[in-house]
């Protein structure tokens, strides 16, 4: 039996990636790992766009373009986030969110 990847395989993969990202974002306490989890979420969205574009709407390029823009924006976001994390590291000497507890209810 030959197995060719179809839309459902891609969607399964992308939703798995999405939930791994969400899980990582909520459980990890290291700021850089949290950023990596967000990248996982964004990549799962990229996969989604490409899969929809290829299997459902093959005549267009909208999904592919969207993917390119998401990659670019994710880089910008990571740059600002890392700048902030470095600034935070200068104050705390740590990148653990548990250490950043000055602001609490």
């Amino acid at each position: 039996m030959e197995l060719t990847p179809g839309l459902y395989h891609m969607l399964f993969l992308s939703s798995a990636l999405f939930f791994i990202g969400v899980y990582g974002f909520f459980t990890r306490r290291n700021l850089v790992t949290m950023l990596m989890s967000i990248e996982l979420i964004l990549n799962s969205v990229n996969l989604n766009f490409i899969a929809f574009n290829k299997y459902l709407w093959p005549g267009q390029l909208d999904g592919l373009f969207f993917t390119l823009f998401i990659i670019a924006i994710a880089a910008a976001e990571a740059a600002v986030a890392i700048a902030i994390i470095i600034n935070l590291y200068r104050c705390h000497k740590s990148v653990d969110v548990e250490e950043a507890r000055n602001l609490k209810y």
Partner: peptide, 13 residues
């Protein structure tokens, strides 16, 4: 910086 960190993480998420 703590506030900024919370802001960028929530807005990215």
């Amino acid at each position: 910086s703590e506030g900024a960190m919370k802001m960028i993480l929530t807005s990215a998420f």
